[in-house]
Every structure is written in C-alpha cells, then in structure tokens.
C-alpha cells in the first residue's frame, strides 16, 4: 500500500498562537480522514478570521488537545525552534501468531507533517513571558504585529487549502472505510521527542544543557 506524505507549509507562529493554529490544522485533516458518520461542527478561530470544521467527536477532540498540550510543553522547553508534528494514519494488521500478545502491526498509509517555526515575540526575553503574552497578546499590537498576524492568517489559509488539495489529489491510497467503532481511521500524532530523528540532536543538546532527564512523548 502506498504511503502518501504531505508536508504542509511551514508556519511562523508565536507561542500563544500555536494551540489555535494546530487545532485548526489537525481537525481539518481529521475531518477529511474521519470518514465515518460525522456531524460537522464549525469553529471560528479567535485569533484569525478563519472557520474550520471539526468532526464533532468528543474523543477525537480530547486527544488532539492532549497532544497540543504536550507540544506546547515541548515548545516551552525549546523556544525559537522549528518543530514538526506528524499526523499519521495507519491500518492495523493483526498478526495471528501474536494475537494473544496483543501485538499489532501498523501499516501506515499517510503522514501529514505540520511544520512550525516558533518565534518569540520581540519583547519577550525568556520563555517565562509566554504566559504574559497569552494573557495580553494585543499588548504589542503595533502595525508590524498586525501585519504579521495577517500574514500568518493568509499562510494558515494556504495550509488549509493545501490540505484540501492533497485530499482531492490523493484518494487511491485510502483504505476502505472502517465500519467498526470510531469515526476515523486509526491515527497517531507524534510530536518532537528524543526519539525523533529530526530533533534528536537538538534534544540531546538540550538535555545536556538543562539536565532535563526526559522528553515528552
């Protein structure tokens, strides 16, 4: 089976924008891959003039939010870094011999890479200021800030259209729709971690510097 890969355009975001942007992107992808019966739910972004669609599935929403929280933690510890979140879809193949051990084989058929360049606000000196930024994002809303925001909005819109185009162009690799429980194909969301090859070096360095023993996964 083909495994299609979609690299989404990199978005330059500030910390306080990550949650919303990530939600928007992840839910949009999921909406195209949760091919069970869904009752769509429109969500207007707070920071941008964009409306995206959720599947209206509570479990899915919860899982996405959890992953976003983890990613935010990672970003806290790795400010000013490029980062990548991967949303992957797979099929489960039960290995009959290993059935009792509950071992399953995942056949990935699609990867979506969401690329962020997390930038720090000019006025923010340390990661501690993140919270204040969240609280008061409009504090520094000069012309430059609003221009940046407009640019990001346009970029986010581009990414959404990129998703749509990809969904339209690549249909043949999608397995047949699962009729079992769950509205979506099996999926997982991976965020940067020590095991991630892309970020492995950064993280090792980081760990050496800060002495942090673990990374979030």
């Amino acid at each position: 089976m083909n495994c299609e890969v979609c690299q989404l355009k990199e978005l330059e975001v500030e910390h306080f924008e990550i949650r919303e942007v990530l939600r928007c992107i992840l839910h949009t992808i999921m909406f195209h891959r949760a091919l069970g019966l869904v009752r769509p739910k429109d969500v207007d972004l707070q920071l941008f003039d964009i409306t995206y669609v959720q599947c209206g599935d509570v479990e899915l929403e919860k899982k996405i939010d959890e992953k976003i929280d983890q990613f935010l933690c990672w970003v806290e510890k790795h400010p000013n870094k490029k980062s990548q979140i991967c949303l992957s879809f797979y099929e489960v193949k039960n290995n009959k011999a290993m059935w009792f051990s509950n071992r399953v084989e995942r056949l990935y058929w699609e990867h979506w890479y969401i690329n962020f360049n997390v930038v720090q606000h000019p006025k923010a000196h340390s990661s501690k200021s993140h919270h204040s930024k969240v609280v008061d994002p409009g504090e520094n809303s000069s012309g430059g800030e609003s221009a940046r925001r407009t640019t990001l909005e346009a970029s986010l819109q581009d990414v959404l259209f990129q998703i749509i185009r990809f969904v339209n162009d690549k249909k043949d690799h999608i397995p047949s729709i699962p009729s079992r429980e769950g509205i979506s194909f099996p999926y997982d969301i991976t965020i940067p971690s020590s095991s991630d090859t892309t970020f492995g070096m950064d993280m090792i360095k980081r760990m050496l510097q800060t002495g942090h023993p673990t990374m979030l996964s």
Binding site: T28, F31, H32, L35, P40, D42, I50, T51, Y52, V53, Q157, L160, F161, I163, I164, V167, N168, K171, I174, I177
Partner: peptide, 15 residues
C-alpha cells in the same frame, strides 16, 4: 471518493 470530495467541499465553503 464522493465522501472525500464532500468533506473537502464542506471545509472549502467555509474558507
């Protein structure tokens, strides 16, 4: 494929 097309239609009309 119709499902997929309609999903993207649904998202697109909002964009």
């Amino acid at each position: 494929k119709s499902i997929l097309l309609l999903r993207s239609l649904y998202v697109t009309v909002r964009l």
